[in-house]
Design a binder for these strands. Structure first.
Lengths: 332, 332
DNA sequence: TTGTAGGCGTTATCAT
DNA sequence: ATGATAACGCCTACAA
């Protein structure tokens, strides 16, 4: 790879001048600019961004930490962030935390060591305190899909409580009263909020919260299967089920169908997230829309605004969920 | 952030010694090692990997280029690569090409400029010649899910032709003869191979290939919908449909159901890829398994072996597809 | 075993 | 407008 030195030699100018035409800020005469440009083209010169980064303490790249690289949720999120950033000429460096504290911290430190200009984090295992400490360091951090009070203007999150509320309310309004709830892992704040919303809806309609109708799932298909099996065992009067995400809803649908339930007549199911294939399921899944792609965009905008001083960006920190009515919920 | 210089000062040793304890290769006395380690801990020292990379011309990270960050296919692929690499202490830098030549090249140059030790590419728009040229440069490249004859030992790919063949053969053996085929975009090599396999199966069973029963889709749900609509218009005797990927199969299933077909009695559908939610569909989708996660693992192993000299890794360049029988294909 | 010093490819601060 | 030259933080011969 050609270096700036060879370019300067071929163009007959100094290193500094070459650097100047690359970073089209300072003034260079049109004539020398052309000379340099020609030399660059001729040598097929590409700046070494590592060296740029070391010298300028700027990398034009933003670190992203997600729990997993697969799955519709993270896919949408990463896409949202990347498309916005790429349009602004910035790059992303993605790494994973696997929902484990040690790996999350490890990932963050990797990103930091790569001189990222900012970090966009979707972390689940790390504590609020850790994030607050981290935010005091020089690299700005932004938090996706999690609300930390002390860092609220750096968080882009969904009103999960409202989502949980809407899900259960939707079922109640269709006449259901024996409603099961399959939640996510309780160590995740999202899970707790969604459950809380469920409880609020029950309360509002004077329905009791029954431990026997609650199951702590894993946000995966298996959790939906195990959950429904358990809930049915606990209460065979069950007519409706709210799941804290669509994967679990899909698992529950599968279990229900395999055990002779007609959907939605025999059992109404509502999901959460509105992941891409919710509409591919049969019956198509009624669910709570989680605008994660838009939230990714917004996190990117927030970074662009506060790190690169891009102007005219309106920031919205909290997104509201909406009900997507499809065919998996029936009236009783 | 503390630098190596501060560590050396605090520990009372030279820069070189600190560097040595970091890169635990050369010998350092246990005593000084401990001194240095203590100084590091005390300062919360983290090496700046940018500087390391510039100085050593090694980044311990591997660049990955995928078409999109979302979607089950790429998710599985990235996960496969990342998990293998992470276990070996290497990191990934992911970027996207969006199936456009310019963006793919742009992405590759970004990765190159970040001093990646190797590149794992899933490129669709760039030419074989470009890849061959690229492979001559100093950064090794490995190619996912695409077969380039001159670079065959650097390719990890699926036998797509066989997959296409198996899909159609499966339908024929269930008694179908009026078989539609919704392919992927023809500029993609995968699409062409799958179509070719379809034609081979037809030929083997003495069935003619009929232009009216072929539709060039887009590998998305919409392609399945548009495709089935067109094929039905062209031939109302259609009893079976092979789709070049599961997304299109899912679109076709949706269209079919909305137009009064019973599945699979009225229409048999087979997909391709066996993406995660193929088994969530109703009826569960019979499809061709594409072991993309394993292929990701293998690409990572290939990189580890040839770039970092990791031993005892068996490399398999071509993977064979298998038929996954579920419930979307019926007998006629 | 440990230290010295030059170099990695840029940027940025001075001069000129 | 352009050119020297010192950083940036680390690695790695070469010396000691």
């Amino acid at each position: 790879m050609a270096t700036i030195y060879e370019v300067s030699k071929l163009a007959g100018v100094s290193l500094a001048t070459v650097s100047r035409v690359m970073n089209k800020n300072t003034r260079v005469s049109e004539k020398t600019r052309k000379k340099v440009q020609d030399a660059m083209d001729q040598l097929g010169y590409r700046p070494n961004s590592i060296a740029q980064s070391l010298a300028s303490n700027r990398s034009n790249s933003i670190g992203i930490l997600v729990s997993e690289l697969h799955g519709p949720f993270f896919g949408q999120m990463m896409s949202g962030i990347e498309s916005e950033l790429r349009a602004a000429g910035k790059h992303v460096i993605i790494t994973t935390g696997h929902s484990e504290q040690e790996k999350e911290i490890d990932g963050i430190e990797f990103l930091l060591s790569r001189n990222c200009d900012a970090l966009i984090l979707h972390v689940e295992a790390v504590s609020d305190e850790y994030l607050i400490e981290l935010s005091k360091k020089s690299t700005p951090i932004f938090i996706m899909s999690r609300y930390v009070e002390n860092l609220k203007d750096r968080c882009i999150s969904l009103n999960n409580e409202m989502g949980g509320y809407l899900a259960t309310k939707t079922l109640i309004e269709k006449g259901h009263s024996a409603i099961g709830f399959i939640g996510g892992p309780e160590f995740k704040a999202d899970s707790r909020s969604r459950l809380q919303g469920h409880r609020r809806a029950l309360k509002e309609f004077n329905l009791p919260f029954d431990d026997k109708l609650y199951f702590e799932g894993d946000f995966k298909e298996t959790g939906g299967i195990a959950g429904l099996r358990t809930l049915i065992k606990n209460n065979d009067q069950l007519t409706a089920l709210a799941c804290a995400n669509d994967e679990m809803a899909s698992g529950a649908m599968k279990y229900a169908r395999e055990h002779g339930y007609n959907l939605p007549e025999g059992l109404s199911i509502i999901g959460f997230d509105n992941i891409i294939y919710a509409s591919y399921l049969y019956p198509t899944l009624t669910t709570i829309h989680n605008p994660i792609y838009e939230m990714g965009h917004m996190a990117a905008k927030l970074a662009l605004k506060s790190v690169y001083n891009v102007k005219n960006l309106k920031i919205q920190n909290i997104f509201e969920p909406t009900v997507i009515e499809r065919n998996s919920v029936g009236s009783v």
